[in-house]
Write a protein that binds this DNA or RNA. Structure first.
Lengths: 277, 277
DNA sequence: CAGTGGTCTAGACCACGCT
DNA sequence: GCGTGGTCTAGACCACTGT
């Protein structure tokens, strides 16, 4: 068969993807709208199915569209983002409309955010403890090197490790693996999975043990999800995860380590305040 | 020829990808190592080229491997990550080994971090101002709605907008679009691109105008890069970007807005400290 | 049932990096 | 020139979603 030379030097599947991207940007294909079917695209662009599928795969990997088996391909809807701010660590149990915490920024108006690609909006979405559903599994393990380092203890120190899957309103929101040094929680209500979710979270938990958390350190990274994570969190192709490695401090002492909180990147924004000396 | 057990129902290209992932995790294919060529894989797994290519495309989109035209496919090397902490906003000009800033966490030891996929390490990498190269373009524009909102001014307010491409040691590190209200910087050295990079950064710049920055708010998000961003920042497939929307405050007043700092997700980790009341 | 996307094959020509 | 991956074609069968 005769291979059609690529007109502009640009591969045909890029041309198709470019055109579809253009329509998405221009609003001709708004979020949620179906893309033309593969057969339509084959006709419209005079390309083979493989080429058309390559275009769509590209758009998928860029996070522009999602594909549903047997139904079609759709422009990725923009999800409302959960905003995680410092106030989630405030001592008072959260109420849907709690005023900002003492160390919060000077009440900046909630900005409308851009996702860098077009339509966007942000929801200052608070989820009450009661709306959470929770899968959890607790176990006792010796500290691996990374976790020991974060705690500032010897590797091998016995830990209580808790693994959580948070859901809110039926939608998986995040995974989290969080540890306490076993000695500090053994035979306390904190070590009992039945007491989760604990109102006020880990800080309240530690408080019940007489440990007063004075600060939290968060190390934020981003990467593509593992296959497991994508499945558990219902993450479509083209969407990264944000990971947080967290240390809770009581003075100089590390009292909790979350060795990777994993959150879908299309459902969250992290809000930080830095005081400048 | 190695015969891979056939978990029936699982598509062949997934089986191939699973096996390659396994080898990567197991260390049989360490970072930087070449994957078997497509023809080898075709033989080893008794699959057509299309199927083998689909496996590799999957691994690429997951960030496990990168492909170089005419050379081969390689396990993605783990890059040292630049750690961005609050100290980058400290008043004193940074020196490679400056002690932590006043509001910093209680000197936690630099943790060794996990990338969630295997081998990993972190470099507490400081880049002196002198190591920066910088592309910049300044222009004067009326504030769009999002930026006006972040500034707390009316849309249309004249802004000095600066676009930067930072490189360090030849490697592109981040894009940034940052604005001042034009009235506050007109006819000052700050408005002259020739004075970039300005030692001490935007805070020192504002200081030279008699404006004392008291705090910085950062809104962190993650998404896949646009085609432009991927090209400019040399981002391979399967690597997301971290974006930061930043407001600099002088008291209650917003004095600078960075309406999207874009950083490759495989080259950075953000380090935040939250004081708990 | 018809329409959608998912998987797979076999073959072809091309552009690139290296030796 | 050889080996690598990049692009493209044409056809086939399948699983899933809707009516």
């Amino acid at each position: 068969m005769i291979v059609v030379p690529t007109p502009a030097g640009r591969p045909r599947y890029h041309q198709v993807a470019d055109e579809l991207r253009r329509r998405i940007r221009a609003g001709a294909l708004p979020p949620g709208a179906p893309l033309p079917s593969e057969s339509s695209l084959m006709q419209e662009f005079t390309a083979s199915r493989g080429t058309v599928r390559q275009s769509v795969a590209l758009l998928r990997s860029e996070g522009h569209v999602i594909t549903e088996k047997g139904r079609g391909t759709y422009v990725r809807p923009v999800l409302p983002k959960r905003r995680l701010g410092a106030d989630r660590y405030a001592s008072a149990p959260s109420t849907p409309s709690t005023p900002p915490s003492p160390s919060a920024p000077p009440s900046p108006s909630a900005p409308s955010t851009r996702d860098g690609r077009g339509t966007s909006f942000t929801l200052d979405q608070r989820i009450e403890w009661s709306a959470y559903q929770l899968d959890r599994s607790f176990d006792e393990v010796p500290a691996d090197e990374a976790t020991a380092d974060l705690f500032g203890v010897e590797p091998g120190t016995p830990l209580l490790r808790r693994h959580f899957v948070f859901r809110a309103h039926g939608v998986p929101q995040q995974l989290s693996t969080s540890s306490y040094v076993l000695d500090t929680v053994r035979d306390t209500p904190v070590a009992d999975p039945a007491n989760e979710p604990w109102p006020g979270g880990n800080i309240a938990q530690l408080r019940s043990l007489g440990i007063r958390v004075t600060g939290v350190r968060e190390l934020v990274r981003s990467r593509m999800p593992t296959a497991d994570e994508a499945a558990t969190l219902h993450i479509p192709a083209g969407v990264p995860v944000v990971t947080i490695t967290r240390q809770m401090f009581a003075g100089d002492r590390v009292v909790e380590v979350a060795n990777d909180i994993v959150i879908p990147g299309d459902r969250v924004e992290l809000d930080y305040w830095i005081a400048v000396a």
